[in-house]
Nucleic acid binder design. Sequence first.
DNA 1: TGTTCCATGTAATAAGTTACATGATTTA
DNA 2: TAAATCATGTAACTTATTACATGGAACA
Lengths: 193, 193
Amino acid sequence: MSLRHILLGILSEPQSGYDIKNRFAQSLQHFWRAELSQIYPLLQKMENEGLLTSKELASSIGPPRRVYKRAAKGRRELLAWLAGGPKLGEERIAYLAQVYFLGNLRNPDQAIKFMQDLRDHMAEWLKSLEAAEGKWRTHDRRYPDDLPDDEFFAQLTLSLGLKKVKANVDWCDESIKRIRTRKLAESKSAKIA
Amino acid sequence: MSLRHILLGILSEPQSGYDIKNRFAQSLQHFWRAELSQIYPLLQKMENEGLLTSKELASSIGPPRRVYKRAAKGRRELLAWLAGGPKLGEERIAYLAQVYFLGNLRNPDQAIKFMQDLRDHMAEWLKSLEAAEGKWRTHDRRYPDDLPDDEFFAQLTLSLGLKKVKANVDWCDESIKRIRTRKLAESKSAKIA
DNA sequence: TGTTCCATGTAATAAGTTACATGATTTA
DNA sequence: TAAATCATGTAACTTATTACATGGAACA
């Protein structure tokens, strides 16, 4: 039920479905994803429910755009979501489910490969977050604590992102070592037996 | 598409839908959740697809249980999922979406309250993870690196959980301070103006 | 005697994914 | 001239949630 609230959050300024998709690509995708084919019908539905208003605008580059903005009712629903306190216990992290079952792989090298692959992705992700932060810092001297409200809270999520992705990289390194050590211990006990 | 793979992972040993729900409550729920009303029909469907087999067992305490176990075909599908490498980019963390939009709250005290609430939940979660670890360590001297494969990889997810939840608590503390500082700066500039 | 636990499910609805369809404009 | 970007959508399908239905055993 969160996508509708995310749309309400984004639509303090008028934007098209396409704009929203780009907003996901920039920042939101780190904790929620959505396809255009989900966004477009939902915008229409929410307009019918009186949460949004829309108008069609001609565009210089390409087809006309339908831009949506939240209505007063939409703003109230957003505030109710926030006032309801943090929604915990709904996390989904597919790669951890995979790690949980890595023991099913017969050869420990496969588990090591999986963790190295994960490590590489996390390190790359960390790089991109650090680059985003660096750019933001150099382009806006208000960064990070004098930013306007909406950007400040987006920065908070970036700052947690950095911490968590770093923790992930460290954990991957540790885990790979631990799997290697087990592998050695196993081959020794096999020789003894 | 991950629940079917999680079921395949769990069902190396025969278990009922109810057992699976309990398994979620113990550990899996930290990265994936599932309701019984999703589990039961999916087990049936996967049996029809030849991924699982089942049989009904009488129980001493309560109604008869239908226990499922993965078939050879199910095991192959699980291995293919793991061999496909880590599934990234599908994370869902609703509370971060909320933080992202906290700027919509007019009064900074509301944002502080939200973050304190989040902090409390994270601290409680951390306690429960530490308790789980302590219990495991005292009850099994093989903990953590000499555990059998399946438990070892489950322990890896616990060890990441500890790191991440700690990072979350720290980040909440930092964030609350930062919001407080902004609030003070704002009230000063209001006086000057 | 009421609540929790054990145990299985169905029905209705909502949310989300994948594939398809269209067409202009800009860049390589 | 092929690909990418801009822009909007529909159709078919899968996945997930909420509500409902049943009933015995244990516990407080």
